[in-house]
Structures are given as structure tokens and as C-alpha cells.
Amino acid sequence: MPVVELVGVTKAYESKVAVHQLSLSINAGQMFGLLGPNGAGKTTSIRMMMGIIMPDSGQVKLFEKPFERRSLDRVGYLPEERGLYKKMKVLDQLIFFGELHGVSAGDASKRARDWARRLEIADALDKKTEELSKGMQQKIQFIGSILHDPGLIVMDEPFSGLDPVNAVLLERTLLEMKDQGRAILFSTHRMDQVEKLCDSICLVNNGEAVLSGRMREIKSRYERNHVIVEFEGSASFLNSEEIAEAKNFSGHAEIRLKPHGDAQKLLHQASAVATIYRFELVEPSLEEIFIRSVGGKPDAVVAA
């Protein structure tokens, strides 16, 4: 059951087309990654889901209904440009956000305390925002966006600005929420994170979806033709006719097979001349896939 759906959505500004004929859909219990370089149209797409920008054509559906503002009470949104009221007490602020989403002040206060405990910032609640560190403000912001227990969580670059410890904490929290059946969409330009967390992705470039679908499905479209071998003994198997290209870093070899090269045959050849500690047939990384799909350089994609 799709929780959010974009159907052929297009949005043009005066000087350029920000999003062109974009379609995607996210189901409950799914973690969805929206990937692409800055200016690719990620934020515009997200803003259209949130009704902040209206699409020129195409349709946005939330919870299987055409977009209506009422549905937003079931959506948690963490925008890329985010902030808090500096002079306001953190707890008051969270209650305010909760109330705006239709949660009663009492419930909002209770949930805020629960979440603050889970995210290890319970003592921040009685302070003013301006007294908090940046990382703490990020967590408060996150709590503010999920206090009303939304069925869909939309986050624009949620990991930017978080230190590794807190990034892991956020990843864990998101995975838990996914397991509870919520749909989660986040945008990022970090491929490794998406690779680790997401079930489905949509890769956008210049406002168009370059690649989209379930992660496994996408990866299975590409041949597993990379092999990593860790070994001791003769390296003569690296001259095998199955291999197109090989790099040997004294006992650690990275190999690209020829098209239709046989990995099993190579394993036999290798084990005949050397002791094998590791022989792994790896799938191409998302980064490589993206580069192949757009035919560009990785820098053009990853650069923030």
C-alpha cells in the first residue's frame, strides 16, 4: 500500500525545470532513499510532497488520496533548511510543534520526554535552544518532527551535521520506526548510507529519475563481476583468462572478470596455487551503478 506517491510530477521555475515527470511510490514499512547531487531536484520533490510547492502537472498522493493539507497531520517533516526558536524553552517548543500537529499539550509533553530519554538529551528539555550544541539541536528538531507519531516521515538530508555517534543513533532510530511499519523517505548525497539503510531508492539527476526501484532489484540488474581475493602463495592465477583486469596489493587482489568470465573456475585455479583466506564475488556499489547510469564522473554526483 503506497503511503506517498508521485505520479508524473513536473515543476518548472522561471529559468529551469527543477523536476521533470518524476514518479515514485513508497510503501508502509519501507525505507526509501532519494539520491542525487545538489540541485538535482530532491528538495523540490520533497516540498511538493509537503504541499509547500504545487506541481505544475502530475499528481501527489498521500495515504492513497490526492494531496490535502489534512493529511499532513500524519506526516513528519524534517526540512533541509531547519531551525528552532532560539529564545524559546526546548520543551515548550516541542509541545508547540506537537500541538500544531493536533496532539494535546499533555500528550506532547509526555512524548517529548520519552523521546528525549531515548535520544539521550533529557536534560536539554528545560534549556533554551540557544544554549544547546548543534548536534543537540538536530536531535530536538528530529523529535519535533515525529512527536505526533506520523505514518510517513520525510527527511531532507537528516544526517548532515551529525557526528558519527549521533548518526548511528539516528540510523538505529529510523530502522526501529521502519520496523514499526512507518514509511520513511530521506534524501542524501551519501551513497554508502543509502546502501546500508534503504530498501528502495530513486536516483535523480537534473530533475529526472535516472534509476529507481528496490535496491536488490537494481543491483541484480548488474552482473556480479568483481572479485576480491585474499591469499598467500603464488599470484600466477591472476593471469587467468577469466580476468579482464587485476590489481594485486601483496596478498589482496581486486579483480574485474571478463564478460561471462567464470568466477568458480577462477577459484579453482587460485586454490591450486595459493592458500585462499577470502574469495568474494561483490556486486557493484551504488556509486558505480550511478556512474554507469549517467555516464558521468562520481564527483559530479557526490559533490555537496
Binding site: 509537503m50 509547500i52 499532513l72 497531520d73 506526516v75 517533516y77 524534517l78 526540512p79 533541509e80 533548511e81 531547519r82 531551525g83 528552532l84 526558536y85 532560539k86 510543534f97 500544531l100 500537529h101 528538531q141 519535533g144 518532527s145
Partner: peptide, 11 residues
């Protein structure tokens, strides 16, 4: 303080 977009998700 960049709070507008946070607010616009509901208001």
C-alpha cells in the same frame, strides 16, 4: 533561524 519550513509542514 530557518524555522519557516519546519512550520510550513503544518501551518
Amino acid at each position: 533561524s530557518r524555522i519557516f519550513e519546519v512550520m510550513l509542514a503544518t501551518v
